[in-house]
Simulated assay, not measured.
Amino acid sequence: MKTTIDELQTLITIIDKGSITAASEELNQTASGISRTLARLEKKLGVTLLRRTTRKLDLTAEGETFLKQAREIMQSLENAEESVKSKGTPSGVLRIDSASPFVLHAITPYLEEFTELYPQVSLELFSSERYIDLLENRIDVAFRIGNLRDSSLHAVSLGASKRRLYASPKYLKKHGTPKSVEDLQNHHLLGFTDPRELNHWPLRFGGGTSYVVKPTTAASSGETILHLARNGVGIACLSDFMTKVDRDAGTLTQILQGATVDVREAIHAVYYKNTQLSHRAQVFIKFIKSKLKDI
């Protein structure tokens, strides 16, 4: 193998920090030394990895391909070192991504317990409402709700969460409780701008098992919709994992129970197929799975 680990780390750091100067500060080297390492790597590979201008650095097509593989190699090396050093004790930084409702309702309530169990694991939480490239964003584990779209990811099933219709007591007192699915057209409905499939509510209607709503108010985040419903703005269709506290407290009331179809959204922990799952990631996935049983 011609390429060294130092050269891989140099390329990754340049991209992550945005410049050769910033990379030199991060790696405690001179900018000229970083430039020489990059030039040496490109010479070994026989390709240009970065286009250099006075203002910025851009990856070439070859650079994008090589960077992706470099990240995989460095992640695998980090995991291998962890498995030797930890001797069974999970440690290191774990970077986690999910949509904000899952982070807020299915992860953060249990982090105090997790950190007490695994004090050597440091967590970095990211909230992305849309699917992101895990390698590019250096995410170890992501949690996804609903159908998976990326075949390059390995998925671990964590169960499923039922979807139901809810409204606040305040809203129902002011506008009345719908007695049938047809009554919904006379109410303020809260829905999603994206993905629009979430505006297909699990209700028996017209001989089918789905009622497509045209939201009076729509939002891109389930957390926003939850707050709107809680504050009496309208009726929403939400997953159980994000409504448990409100259901227990009575701040949200389920409606049209008799017409509701048992539709559940799958919950998965996902990571890149070619990346070895670290010990810290394994224990975190197992921990969160145990908590989802109570939702």
Rank of each mutant, 00 (worst) to 15 (best):
L153N: 11
D133F: 06
S152A: 15
Y166V: 11
L117D: 11
G176W: 08
F143S: 07
D150T: 05
H154Q: 15
E136N: 05
K162M: 07
Y166H: 08
I145N: 06
V156Q: 07
F114R: 12
L117V: 05
H175S: 13
E124S: 11
P169V: 10
D140C: 05
R149E: 07
A106H: 01
E116S: 07
D133Y: 04
R164N: 13
F143K: 02
L134T: 03
P109T: 00
P109N: 00
G146S: 06
R164E: 12
I145R: 06
R164H: 15
I139T: 01
I107K: 08
L135Y: 10
T108N: 13
I139S: 01
S157M: 01
T108M: 15
L117A: 14
A142I: 00
V121R: 11
Y131V: 11
T108D: 11
R163S: 03
H175A: 11
L165W: 11
V121L: 09
L125G: 14
L158T: 04
K162G: 04
Q120L: 11
R130N: 15
S157P: 04
K174G: 01
Y171R: 10
E113F: 07
F126Q: 08
I132E: 11
E116R: 13
L135D: 04
G146E: 05
K173T: 12
L123V: 07
G176R: 07
A106F: 05
L153K: 07
I107N: 03
P169S: 05
G176P: 02
Y131H: 12
S127C: 10
L111A: 02
S161K: 00
S127P: 00
K173L: 09
Y131W: 05
A155L: 05
L111G: 03
T108Q: 14
L153Q: 10
P169Y: 12
F114C: 10
K174S: 09
S122V: 12
Y166M: 05
H154D: 14
E136L: 04
I107E: 09
D133S: 15
T177D: 02
D150F: 06
K174H: 07
I132L: 12
G159V: 04
